[in-house]
Simulated scan of single mutants.
Amino acid sequence: MLKLVRIIIVVLLCLIICICGTIYSLIRFKNPNNVSVVARWFGRLYPLFGLNVEHRYPENVDQFNPCIYIANHQNNYDMVTISYMVQPRTVSIGKKSLIWIPFFGLVYWATGNILLDRDNKNKAHSTMGQVAQRINQDNLSVWMFPEGTRSRGRGLLPFKTGAFHAAIAAGVPVVPVVCSSTQNKIDLNRWNNGKVICEILPPIDSRQFNKENVREFANHCHQIMQHRIAELDAEIAQSSL
């Protein structure tokens, strides 16, 4: 019964956020802060899932822009956990097919996110060049999930190199954003689903890498994020004893 009530409330609130977010973003069309505002609306829904989410920021997080944020992508609960970490003047990159999702697709487009045609690899590579150009011209940051898909309990999946090519081309740092594990830890029939920690890590300078060692760049960031996620999981496990 609790699960059903939660689902109904969450669906209704998500519809309201999508409708209000679309209207808000169309009024402020192309405003670079649209994405962070609407992302935080979704991020405030976490208590409805019985979660206690802690958001951790470096002291100088407001000085990170422009940059490319890379985050681990676990499941649909990312919408109410790590999405709250999206910073001002940040847009995300998502699949072009997202626009066909009822209500959500419209707000995703209206807020100013970048839609990528992943079925066309040549176009995707060209888009990364355009992303780098837009970062510098518009003083924007970009949020990406370098795994390319939800991990769904399989750990941090290998990274694709698109985000790192874009960072090298734009000459901006990569900023890892990590969220502790949520897969199989949330039961909507349970009042309390425990604690989740989301954290923005220090920037990683892209200038020490180039096109020839971009895979090394991706692996370096993967190791840092994998290690920190393990630390956060251990911290949560210890605090629950």
Rank of each mutant, 00 (worst) to 15 (best):
R215A: 10
I68T: 04
D62A: 12
S141N: 04
I23A: 12
V11F: 13
N60R: 14
T149I: 11
V86G: 00
L241R: 14
A132F: 01
I23K: 08
G194K: 02
N31Q: 09
I9F: 11
N193Q: 11
Y57K: 04
P146S: 08
V5D: 01
C18V: 04
I229E: 08
E235R: 09
K185T: 07
P66K: 04
I93E: 02
K211N: 06
N75I: 00
C198E: 04
G153M: 09
E216N: 02
G43P: 09
A39C: 15
W191H: 04
P146I: 09
Q238R: 13
N213Y: 02
H125D: 09
P88Q: 02
R228S: 12
V214F: 04
T81A: 05
I101P: 06
M1K: 12
T81W: 06
R40Q: 14
Y46W: 09
S181T: 15
Q238Y: 02
E235Q: 15
E147M: 03
A132K: 02
C198N: 09
N52C: 11
V142M: 11
V107Q: 11
P202C: 09
D62K: 14
G171K: 07
N122D: 13
I168G: 02
E54I: 10
H227Q: 15
H55N: 14
R134D: 13
E235K: 14
L98K: 06
K195L: 08
E147L: 08
L4R: 11
D138K: 03
A132Q: 00
T111C: 14
Y24C: 13
T22F: 07
T81R: 03
C18H: 12
N210Q: 05
I27M: 07
T149L: 07
A39I: 01
N113D: 15
W109P: 04
C14G: 12
S206V: 03
Q183A: 12
S240F: 01
V86Q: 01
Q183C: 09
I224P: 03
I114H: 03
